[in-house]
Design a protein around this nucleic acid. Structure first.
Lengths: 210, 210
DNA sequence: CGCCTTAATGACCAGGTGGTCATTAAGGGT
DNA sequence: ACCCTTAATGACCACCTGGTCATTAAGGCG
């Protein structure tokens, strides 16, 4: 190292597609880590090993870069297909595997981080993602209050993601994946399927609502 | 208006305590709306009707202002006291009332918004708030996996808050308060108390874990 | 080999940020 | 009435942000 010929002149590699891909990867990681507002173009450029001018050249604005870096909503078809009775187990497993597996750059986390501080671009993407998954669940579920149940399910998953990955503190963040899958499968099942209050308590709820 | 004597010279009111309080209110509202990163001192000063220099004079830094503006974790004693069997109903009611009632400036929302983009000060406060409520629940609950259940409960409430107040979109945001209370009481009950998988499905979970 | 398209750079800009500080003036104490 | 403490102001600063653009040089093609 150091005796390479002509190493003093900054060798400039010329490979638009590779650079573009590297920038997208870096953007994903950066936005996942810091959210939209705090993720800077210069940081992304640095991670990708290019200058921030090049980032602007490939994606004309920070917002366009963000949109390009966040892939469309994942297809839930394979999770949702199959016996609805075992959906909670499949769902919990897929969910935990996806988030624990993502090497620190998952669009859902990035969107939660970004949407939280009222970023328009992020909120639009988040709404789309939310709608897509709600539709997927709706297609295979049925029953009383199914829409509200699905909303509570989504909220539940978001809350778990928030605790485990966004904050990353507390028991939920330290729970081993298999334990989390088991617990999550159970709470998902309860939210989706259990229609009545549990036995063993006199259930003082003032009344059942409408 | 306009013929007030000496109205051209900017009358300078001198009232440190009132200004201090106004700044804290404005800060709460601003951070709740935009989160820590996007809430600027000048915006806060403007809402409070003072200059940003004064804000810096009262609270030496943005971070100190933030800490001062976020009140300590609410005391859950009154919610938690009473028959544990009806805790879900009391909890759901208190929770929904608190967040729906706050005139657009609740510390929990501010913390969620701020913590999301990896702000150290916010994360510390959030951890404290989380710990306090977990302890309060722990004091009156018991049973298998109670710690994990409490974590799931907190995650659930955060997810609901996120959907209803932070994003403010989707069915959960439009659900009338009383309906939400009823649904929430039920899911809280299930998470806290229902120990077994529901009847009516063969419960494919690989095994119960430890 | 030299040309020529164009990928890549880095200097530059305007605007906004948190933070500092000399200056002004309010209003209680004497 | 005059001070004199100090609340309040607003000009100022360094820094960082997203975004622009003239300049440079890589490398395919004739």
């Amino acid at each position: 190292m150091g005796h390479t010929p002509a190493n003093d002149k900054p060798r400039r590699t010329r490979d638009p597609e590779a650079h573009r891909a590297a920038i997208l990867d870096a953007a994903r990681a950066c936005f996942t880590e810091r959210g939209y507002a705090r993720g800077t173009i210069r940081d992304i450029a640095s991670r990708a090993g290019v200058t921030h001018g090049l980032v602007m050249r490939h994606f004309s604005s920070k917002e366009q870069l963000f949109v390009a870096a966040m892939p469309g909503p994942r297809d839930l078809a394979d999770v949702v297909a199959g016996d609805p009775a075992t959906l909670p187990e499949r769902l919990a497993l897929a969910f935990v595997e996806r988030l624990d597996g993502a090497g620190g750059s998952d669009p859902l986390i990035a969107l939660i981080r970004s949407t939280a501080s009222n970023e328009e671009a992020a909120t639009a993407l988040y709404r789309e993602m939310r709608q897509r998954s709600a539709d997927a669940y709706r297609a295979v579920l049925d029953g009383l209050d199914v829409d509200v149940r699905i909303e509570l399910l989504i909220a539940h998953l978001i809350g778990v993601t928030f605790s485990r990955h966004v904050i990353g503190v507390g028991p939920l963040a330290e729970l081993p994946a298999d334990r989390l899958v088991a617990q999550l499968a159970r709470s998902v099942r309860q939210i989706l399927f259990d229609q009545d209050v549990a036995p063993g308590s006199q259930a003082a709820g003032q009344d059942s609502g409408r």
